[in-house]
Design a protein around this nucleic acid. Structure first.
Length: 839
RNA sequence: GCCGAAGUGGCGGAAUUGGUAGACGCGCUCGACUCAAAAUCGAGUGGAUAAAACCGUGCGGGUUCGAGUCCCGCCUUCGGCACCA
């Protein structure tokens, strides 16, 4: 707080955001106010990152909703004394620009994705400036720059060296609209649609590049030390899908066959075996008399899409292949079937079927008349009646018909937490018949895309040497610009002769380049390191700076990246760590997700619905500060919600009243009282406490509500005498400072107008004084039998007896106490009194 | 089917450890200013009632002096996973 009251000069003009916003934006830029010195270690660092956007060329309300509150949070931290890095860049590769080029080509025009992308980036940078955000543009990156994507190629080669990148032929998901393959994570929901365009995907059998994210499955399940929303952690955990159980070896005429099961304890009830139709053992095991049937089933399974399979209502189908396996613990011969409910891509593509305990196996056994052997006796029955069962039993109980583990208890828990499972695994390992095992649902990350506008793979195919890495010193493999864009289902680079044809780095003979490009999620898997040194030429990142500045302290963005980007980024971080470039295990310490801002009709904003709210129009009408304030005031940030064109009037009036409060000369000349000043001070310090807590917790809506209350209180207290007090000045300074992160332009202008020197944005956040929060007297509710019957005013330090005396004397309360006996008296200091009476 | 989140006025939403439900704002009503309107300022605003008693946080129970908050059983909406062995 200042030591002397400042001279106030009033100059009454109306609040006009259109005059002050461009003025300050220009001054801030000229002064380099938001430039961050990364080498400055005099203050603690804070890396505040918000997800970079695709350069669509137009900043929409969703961008504002994501960025403006993040900007406010970053500004708050800066005022709290941190050296805050708050960078911005562009996720510049991707299909929209390429599709626009194709569209233009069809019209006979020539639009290159690169030209378009850079033009759109320029436009968006200007729009971001209008928002008043404090991004440090000197750190900007665009992932389509060769000096950025060069390092995608570098990371890819490092992974290739370590065996973390590999190529394999297999059935993959293909989007017929985007004309490219997709990662498993990009196929969404029951309908199996493309994450980008919503088109149902189909299967294609292709040779593609993968990154071995499954090597890190176990580590990716560990979120220790991360302050992330539970929802995101659960989604990733679900996606990785860890199952604990055992691998068991079965003898077959074609050799040993391993199956994975989560219930090895039920092995004695395994009465048949099922293989996926694609299983490599099928051909060899099939007996001559079953050959025709089996071939037909395999063919049909191949033809059927997953949609078809689901559409069939999960009715079990399958055929006996005429071969038998030996149940390793009972020695019984059990028939081997194939069925499409067993998937080649999970576990070992083969299962032991225990119809007693597994609903799918149960249905299958009932349909085809296979044996059902009871192995777990529920505790509430004497004997198990298999014939009377209408579904499988997978609950807890005592093991029966199970040889050495008879009498062991299955308690319903997973893995070794169940005594029966633990005992079985011990038995299997002792007999060398199997072992404890863990299986994950997570698949390796398919990164090949058959499109142009992305990072070329640094791989050359040589007839003699196969897939050969492009030497590091010749990186980047530049994306050629003179390319035919028409989509063919193959990469456009394939028809670019001078790109395609090259020589083998090993033998120098004619060779061809890989023509697919990389998934753009590669770009975003490490970009936050690049902000520190966007133009570094001898490496992807600067180890020293990375050590000081990363991991990112707070990361904000949409929940739609819960699995995709955020899981890939965690994976990359662990790989970069294992390459020895960094020490950290995780990229983002604290994660916060904003919700989605909807149209006024509560529907997703879209041109076709005509419910789009354009931020440029809003800024022209209300000014950026009002739009920012309203977006933060609308509700909890992680909830989003519909835009309300009436609702913005609230923040409009609030900023107007704040303006008047500071700039208008008081007319009230009522005499000042000690009490008024004390109340004023209390209001100011209460606001500082509440707003500070709210900023810490990303509760912008209540922070603004608190500031509104402060403005209302100060307006009531304002008088000729009051404005000359230190208390008033402290209130005005506190208010402007707390307004600064939310509405940076008006705060700067009011700061200047109230005779302060230097930018408000370089000042420290106000602190509060606990003693100023204490009231002299407090109002307490008096309840009789739990119902409020009166209000009393007592001194803050009143004793329990004094409070009770005052409570009982309250006239309305006294009415209830007549002819009644008080059986209990409860006093909650500062809150209420409850008198329990018996009539 | 499994897992998770959420249901509070006409609307957006507030409510430390259980302690005065509805902060703040929108809207609405009345008033001031104005020839008038807009803007602004002031007062009021959960329901019902003349007033009190009374009823109110999705529904039904329970614990407690006291429940939006805790427990049990449901309903609805949203999100994720799903023939994953």
């Amino acid at each position: 707080m200042s030591e002397a009251v400042k001279e106030i000069s009033y100059e009454s003009t109306r609040y006009n955001p259109h005059a002050i916003e461009p003025k300050w934006q220009k001054k801030w830029e000229e002064a380099g106010l938001y430039k961050v010195d990364l080498s400055d270690q005099s203050k603690p660092k804070y890396y505040f990152l918000t997800m970079y956007p695709y350069p669509s060329g137009d900043l929409h309300t969703g961008h504002w909703y994501a960025e403006a509150p993040a900007d406010a949070a970053a500004r708050y931290l800066r005022m709290k004394g941190f050296n805050v890095l708050f960078p911005m860049g562009f996720d510049a590769f991707g299909l929209p620009a390429e599709n626009a080029a194709i569209k233009a080509a069809r019209r006979g025009e020539n639009v290159h994705p690169a030209t378009l992308t850079y033009k759109q980036i320029d436009r968006m940078v200007k729009q971001f400036a209008q928002m008043g955000a404090m991004f440090d543009w000197s750190k900007m990156i665009a992932t389509c720059d060769p000096d950025y994507y060069k390092w995608n190629q570098w990371f890819f080669l490092k992974m290739y060296e370590k065996g973390l990148a590999y190529k394999k032929q297999s059935p993959v998901d293909w989007c017929p609209s985007c004309n490219t393959t997709l990662a498993r994570e990009q196929v969404i929901g029951d309908d199996r649609v493309c994450e980008r365009c919503g088109t149902p995907v189909i299967k294609k059998d292709l040779s593609q590049w993968y990154l071995k994210i499954t090597d890190y499955a176990e580590e990716l399940l560990n979120f220790e030390g991360l302050d992330w929303p539970a929802r995101v952690r659960e989604m990733q955990t679900n996606w990785i899908g860890r199952s604990e159980g055992a691998e068991v070896n079965f003898e077959t005429p074609a050799g040993p066959l391993t199956v994975f099961t989560t219930r090895p304890d039920t092995l004695w009830g395994a009465s048949f075996m099922v293989l996926a139709p694609e299983h490599p053992f099928v051909a060899e095991l099939t007996s001559a008399d079953k050959r025709t049937q089996v071939d037909a089933y395999v063919e049909e399974a191949k033809r059927k899409t997953e949609i078809d399979r689901l559409a069939e209502g999960k009715e079990k189908t399958g055929v006996f292949i005429g071969a038998y396996a030996k149940n390793p613990v009972t020695g019984r011969d059990i028939p081997i079937w194939i069925a499409d409910y067993v998937l080649m891509g999970y576990g070992t593509g083969a299962i032991m079927a225990v119809p007693y305990g597994d609903q799918r196996d149960f249905e299958f056994a009932r349909k085809f008349g296979l044996d059902i052997i009871p192995v777990v006796k529920p505790d509430d029955v004497e004997t198990v009646d298999v014939a009377g069962m209408d579904k499988a039993y997978d609950g807890p109980g005592t093991m029966i018909n199970s040889g050495p583990i008879n009498g062991k208890i299955h308690n319903g828990e997973k893995g070794q937490n169940s005594p029966a499972i633990a005992a079985t695994i011990e038995y299997l390992e002792g007999q060398n018949l199997g072992k404890a095992a863990i299986t994950y649902r997570l698949r390796d990350w398919l990164i090949s895309r058959q499109r142009y506008w992305g990072t070329p793979f640094p791989i050359i195919y040589c007839e003699e040497h196969g897939a050969v890495a492009v030497p590091y010193e010749t990186l980047p493999v530049e994306l050629p610009t003179d390319v035919e864009f028409m989509p063919t289902g193959e990469s456009p680079l394939k028809s670019h002769e001078s790109f395609l044809n090259t020589t083998c780095p090993i033998c120098g003979k004619a060779a061809t380049r890989e023509t697919d490009t990389m998934d753009t999620f590669m770009d975003s898997s490490w970009y936050w390191f690049r902000y520190l040194t966007p133009h570094k030429e001898d490496g992807p990142l600067d180890a020293k700076l990375a050590k000081h500045w990363t991991p990112v302290d707070t990361y904000t963005g949409g929940i739609e990246h819960a699995i995709l980007h955020l899981m890939y980024a965690r994976f990359f971080t662990k790989v970069i760590r294992d390459l020895g470039l960094i020490q950290q295990d995780e990229p983002f310490k604290r994660l916060r997700n904003q919700g989605i801002i909807l149209g006024e009709d509560n529907e997703k904003m879209s041109k076709s619905r005509g419910n789009v709210v354009n931020p440029d129009d809003l800024v022209a009408e209300y000014g950026a500060d009002t739009v920012r304030t309203y977006l933060m005031f609308i509700g909890p940030w992680d909830q989003g919600g519909p835009w309300n064109s009436k609702g913005i009037e609230g923040p409009t009036r609030f900023l107007g009243r704040s303006w008047t409060l500071v700039t208008e000369e008081p007319t009230n000349d009522e005499a000042i009282t000690e009490k008024t000043l004390k109340e004023l001070k209390r209001a100011v310090h209460t606001a500082i406490k509440e707003v500070t807590d709210d900023f810490e917790n990303f509760q912008f809506n209540t922070a603004i509500a608190e500031l509104m209350t402060l403005v209302n209180v100060m307006n009531k207290a304002k008088s000729k005498q009051v404005v000359e007090t230190l208390e008033w000045q402290e209130g005005i300074e506190g208010l402007i400072k707390m307004l600064a992160p939310i509405a940076p332009h008006i705060a700067e202008e009011l700061w200047e107008r109230s005779n302060h020197k230097g930018s408000i944005h370089l000042k420290n956040w106000p602190s509060y004084d606990e003693t100023a929060l204490v009231k002299d007297s407090i109002s307490m509710a008096v309840q009789v039998n739990g119902k409020v019957r009166g209000q009393i005013e007592v001194a803050t330090d009143a004793s329990k007896d004094d409070i009770l005396d005052t409570a009982k004397a309250e006239s309305n309360v006294a009415r209830y106490l007549d002819n009644a006996q008080i059986v209990r008296e409860i006093v909650v200091p500062g809150k209420l009194v409850n008198l329990v009476i018996k009539a």
